[in-house]
């Protein structure tokens, strides 16, 4: 589903973010990316949704070889790759319902489609009862649920989460992780960059540790401190 072929990434300011990363994530897999701040977790995710382009090497997502993907096709890639952030990135001027609907509407979905799929996504993440509220009226956990619903509504093949629980209390964090596991169980490939040790240790999924932009350790059913001795 996701293949990194010897990927290196140097940002225009000269920072070496990734060095010779080779990684293969199977369809339906759940993967944790761990490592302290600045080790390249977000950069790996950015390469998948084409926010960053590798300086060398290539990334293949489903059937898309991203180095040759024209700029005009990037939106279509992103409809298949849902992204969730630590700061939620919700549209402040839109309600929960409108935020989720927006991701559908920009794909040219009919109003009938929107009316059918938005409530389903909201129910799945457990936020349907707050659909008329604006993001600032919600708690952090509720905002993150909304963001997850938004990334889900297009039935993405892959869901990328960049520190999805970074701003949340431990209890809410566990709920969000459980929600991601549930989404994964329905067949969506999920990649989570996180510092949330408790969840990683409890869930025992594949764990990839990044150190200085390189893969330091990669283990099935790993723990947070995998590779640290």
């Amino acid at each position: 589903m996701i293949v990194f072929e010897d990927v290196s990434l140097v940002y225009p300011n000269g920072v070496h973010a990734l060095s010779n990363i080779s990684l293969n994530v199977a369809r339906g897999e759940f993967l944790f990316l761990v490592g302290s701040t600045g080790q390249g977790k977000s950069s790996v995710l950015k390469c998948i949704y084409r926010e960053a382009c590798p300086t060398s090497g290539d990334v293949v997502v489903d059937d898309w070889r991203l180095s040759t993907l024209p700029h005009g096709k990037v939106p279509f890639l992103r409809r298949k790759v849902g992204v969730v952030f630590q700061d939620f990135k919700l549209l402040r001027g839109k309600t929960v319902w409108e935020n989720v609907a927006y991701a559908l509407q920009v794909t040219g979905a009919t109003s009938r489609d929107v009316a059918r799929r938005v409530p389903r996504a909201l129910e799945l993440v457990g936020i349907a009862h707050k659909s008329k509220m604006f993001p600032h009226e919600l708690s952090g956990g509720e905002q993150q649920r909304t963001a997850i619903a938004r990334s889900l509504v297009n039935n993405p093949l892959i869901m990328l989460c960049d520190e999805p629980t970074g701003n949340l209390d431990p209890e809410t964090s566990s709920e969000i992780m459980a929600l991601l596991a549930r989404i994964n169980s329905k067949g969506t490939t999920v990649v989570v960059a996180t510092h949330n040790q408790a969840s990683v240790d409890r869930m025992r999924r594949r764990v990839v540790r990044l150190v200085h932009g390189r893969i330091a350790h990669d283990e099935e059913r790993g723990r947070y401190h995998v590779g640290l001795g």
């Binding site: 939106p75 991701a103 920009v106």
Partner: peptide, 16 residues
């Protein structure tokens, strides 16, 4: 600007 970034993230084309 933030809104535009979000629109791009959810797969809105430049014209949309």
């Amino acid at each position: 600007q933030r809104e535009i970034t979000i629109m791009q993230l959810v797969g809105a084309t430049n014209w949309t």
